[in-house]
Amino acid sequence: MMATAADLAAGRYRQVARTERALVALIQRIWRRLSAATIAEDLEGEAGAAILAAVVAGQISVAQGAQAFVAASMAAQGGAGVAEAALTAAAFAGFAPGGGSLETLLFVPAIGVRQRLAAGMPAQEAMLGGLADMAMYATTTVADTARSSAQVAMAADPQVVAYTRVVNLPACSRCIVLAGQQYAYSEGFLRHPRCDCQTVPLREKEWAGVQSPRDLYEAMSEAERRRTFTVAGSRAVGEGADLGQVVNARRGMSRPDAATTSEGTTRRGLYGRRVRRTGGGTARIPGERYARTTQSRLTPEEIFRRAEGRAEQLRLLRRYGYLV
């Protein structure tokens, strides 16, 4: 029996969640060997390099599954495999959500540890706070990569007209009220730190298999409802209030908004090699080991914002190395 779209969405969620759990476990093992007194040096050295490599590997892992997930979802909805381009998983790795430096983002927990120490917090507690920060940045990066790569895979498949938001419990109130919402396939995804919601591609504008906000609310225990919506909010919903009126869904939610990334722009990088083949120049930046291209590399999110129509999206996604 062919898997349903709901089955495929659940499978994709489990794949990303497994990757995140393995990444957090590795970070915890590394973190146990670190000291609050030397945390900055540690994250600038081998420990930081190991964490960075693990996050990059996680990004590649979830990106590698994106196009197969989209193709299977289309097949489950009666479509056929007609992708117009192949996704390049490595092109999504090495930069933070929104296009910034992943290496810089993964150093921020060291700053947090130092700030906690300066505020008088015991070293052990400061390090626990730093570990929580690192886990949040790492898992948010992987989750954003999973969604971004899936969105690019959707653009490469002309059957996809939209995507819907699938929310998995436990979830915050902001995500619950967005469950089942449908968006154009190129529209940016609203998320927050630690958000693990998934996108599911749609061949048609409707898909009845997605749980609505009310379905998710009914599936929660009373304790979960009170914790998620507050006691007063849970009572209001139970008495018939609209979930969207109880929760300000967009508070704390954002879309990756950086226009460019420097990842992959060195002479050896995927995009850098492509620019040099087409006659583009490179220049060495003071303090960096390798020369970089003099052309900025657009993020997928910025490409979707700028491009008019699928053909232009595909042209730019190929140009910047996300598709081949």
Rank of each mutant, 00 (worst) to 15 (best):
G244C: 10
G244S: 10
G244A: 11
Q245C: 06
V247N: 12
V247Q: 03
N248P: 01
R250A: 14
R250V: 14
R250M: 14
R250L: 15
M253Q: 13
P256A: 04
P256Q: 04
P256T: 02
P256M: 06
D257L: 09
A258I: 13
A258G: 15
A259K: 14
A259G: 07
T260P: 02
T260Y: 03
T260L: 05
T260F: 02
T261V: 03
T261I: 00
S262D: 14
E263R: 05
G264W: 00
G264F: 05
G264D: 06
T265C: 06
T266L: 02
T266G: 01
T266A: 03
T266F: 01
R267P: 01
R267C: 07
G269C: 09
L270D: 05
Y271Q: 03
Y271F: 12
Y271E: 02
Y271R: 05
R273Q: 14
R273T: 03
R274F: 04
V275W: 07
T278I: 07
G279E: 09
G281P: 04
G281K: 12
G281M: 11
G281V: 11
T282E: 11
R284V: 14
R284T: 10
I285D: 11
I285C: 01
I285E: 14
P286D: 12
G287W: 11
G287A: 12
G287L: 14
E288W: 09
R289L: 15
R289I: 09
R289V: 14
R289K: 13
Y290H: 13
Y290Q: 13
A291E: 09
A291F: 02
A291M: 06
Q295E: 14
Q295R: 09
S296K: 12
R297A: 01
R297S: 00
R297C: 00
